[in-house]
Amino acid sequence: MSPGDERGYGSGPSRTDDGYSTIGGTRQTRTRLPDGEGGDGYGTPRRPARSSRSLVTVVGVVVLLIAAIAFANMSGGGGDGNNGRSGSSGTKPDSSSTAATGTKPVTGKNGSIPSGFAHDEQGAQSAATNYSVALGSAEMFDKERRHTVVATVYAPAVAAARQGDLDKVYSGQSFLTSIGLNADGTAPAGLTFISRSNPVGTKVVKFNGDTASVAVWYSALFGLAGEGSKNPVSESWFTNTFDLAWIDGDWKITDFTQKDGPTPVGRDQAASPAEEMADAVEQFGGFTYAR
């Protein structure tokens, strides 16, 4: 008979015949000696078996102790001198980089573009994010609307020159034809033009009070949705770094650079039908981005 058998080791009384045959619920067999003899063979008195109630009490105390330690760690009770603030060593990202601050990011709008950003790092991030949305919108392909966007987001000293450069790009017939649009920047009949930037996050590269450099990581949807489209809507990823200046009570762009990525791995998802994609751009509006 094996040591793990319900009746114990070898022959003789079963476990249930002796109240001392189980120790602390471990079901280990113990030989009972006459009173007065060493209970463990080394001359020391034999301790009585621990009851299940005492075992439960010990386990409960241990659980409470572990919970108390975990709570102390979460509340910054480690005595590190930083009052529980994270990121003091600079080795881990600060959770505030993606958390909402509760501060209203914008006080008004200039047309469809937010304006009146705070004169601080958060305001600079919010301005850069909203401006990236405006500059990546389908409005940039309409001459009148493009001029409004440029005048709103760029500093006056550079807006005129920037507007001329953008007019050359967006009004070029070869460019418009290459992306499937008409010569006036409109979509062919039966098709819906989609150009939308979707910011994922921002990073302050530099901040000096009245000037700032902010990087905006975003995905871009671009193409023509509809039956027969030769340029279907696709997704790409970019990072734009905006140089900003505090001018006349708001942040304005003085320059920017763009680079590809970071680009995540695409999932194995089936592309939506052309009609569904066309409906989405009409049914789902854009956001006013905070931070």
Rank of each mutant, 00 (worst) to 15 (best):
Y218F: 12
R53A: 15
E144S: 10
I247G: 01
F287A: 15
G201C: 07
A100D: 10
E37P: 04
A68S: 10
T101K: 04
G249C: 02
L224I: 03
F222Q: 14
T91L: 14
G172Y: 06
R291Y: 12
D268Y: 05
G76T: 03
Y289V: 03
V59G: 10
R32Y: 09
F207V: 04
R47D: 15
G285T: 07
R85F: 14
S219A: 15
D120G: 03
V61A: 14
A49P: 10
A278F: 06
V63P: 01
E235C: 15
Y131A: 01
A215Q: 09
Y289M: 08
L33H: 12
D248P: 02
S75H: 13
S137F: 01
T57M: 10
D167F: 02
G223Q: 05
L244D: 02
S51F: 05
S112D: 15
G249N: 05
P93W: 07
S137D: 04
A157R: 01
G78F: 15
A278Q: 06
G87H: 07
D5F: 11
S21P: 05
K109H: 10
Q122W: 04
W217G: 14
S75I: 07
F141H: 05
P264G: 07
I194D: 04
V281Q: 11
I179H: 04
N130V: 00
I179V: 08
A128Y: 02
K109F: 08
S236W: 07
V265E: 14
D268H: 09
G136W: 02
G164S: 15
G185C: 03
G226C: 06
K168M: 09
D17T: 09
F141C: 00
I194A: 06
R46Y: 12
G19N: 13
D167N: 05
A159I: 02
R146M: 03
D40M: 12
G164Q: 14
T57P: 04
S272D: 10
G111F: 00
S11D: 11
I194R: 04
T44M: 13
V233T: 03
D94C: 13
A278M: 07
D279R: 12
K206Y: 08
F71C: 14
P45G: 13
G123A: 07
A225Y: 03
M140L: 01
E275F: 05
T29D: 11
P264S: 09
Q28G: 13
G39S: 08
